[in-house]
Write a protein that binds this DNA or RNA. Sequence first.
DNA 1: CACCAGGCAAGTA
DNA 2: TACTTGCATGGT
Length: 223
Amino acid sequence: MSIPQIPERGEADYSILNLYNRLLSHFGPQGWWPGETEFEIMIGAILTQNTSWRNVEKAISALKRNNLLNPEALSRISVNELSTLIHSSGFFRIKAERLSCFVKYLMERYKGDVGRMRKMDTDTLRKELLKVKGIGPETADSILLYALNRPVFVVDSYTRRVFSRHNYFYKRERYEKIQEFFIKNLPKDPRIYNEYHALIVRLGKTYCRKRPLCKECPLNEYL
DNA sequence: CACCAGGCAAGTA
DNA sequence: TACTTGCATGGT
C-alpha cells in the first residue's frame, strides 16, 4: 500500500482539474452554448456535426426567420424544403433527414414538448437519443449537457487528439472510456463539463491542429 | 490550390 | 472489431 505523493512546490500538477483551471485562466469563459431555447441547442447539435459553427448560425437564422425553430413547425415541412433552408451548414441532405428523424422522435415520444422530455432521467434519455438515426454519442451528449444541463462530459476529436498526445490515454480509446476518465476525475457538475469541453475545443483549434505537439501549446508549460 | 470544421452511418475485410 | 468512405458548404 503506497502513499500518494503530494506534488512539491513548483512541480507540475497533472490533474485534469488543474488543467481546467489553467485553461480557464488562459482563455477565459467560452460562453457555450449559444442559443435561446433548449430546442434550438438540440437542433444546433445536429447541424454542427463536422461543421464550423459559423455555417450553422446561418442555417439557424434561416429557420428562425421562417418561424420554423419549434418541433411542431419542423414536423410539418418536407425534408426537401428543410434541406434548402439549412443549406449553408453543409451535408444538407443528410442533416435534413437527421433533423427530421429527431423531430419525429420528439413528437411521437414527448408530443413535441421539451418540458416532458426534461422530466426523464439522463440514462434513459441517452439511450433514446442514440437510437435516433443521425444522433451518435457526441451529439447525444451535447444535447444532454448543453440543452438539458445534465452532468455528461462531451468527448470530441479534439479531446482525443490533445489528451492522447499528452499520454492521458490511447489515441483510439473507446468514447465511453474517455468520457469515464473525465467524469471520474472531475466534480460531477454540468457547469464544469460545459466549460471544459468548450475550452478543449478552443485549445485544439488554436494550438493543436497539425503538429503532434506544437511549441505554442499552453499545455506544454503545465505538463 | 489544399485543408479543415463543435460526426455519423454504412460498407469492407 | 477496426478501418474506410460519403456526405458538402464556406473560411483560411
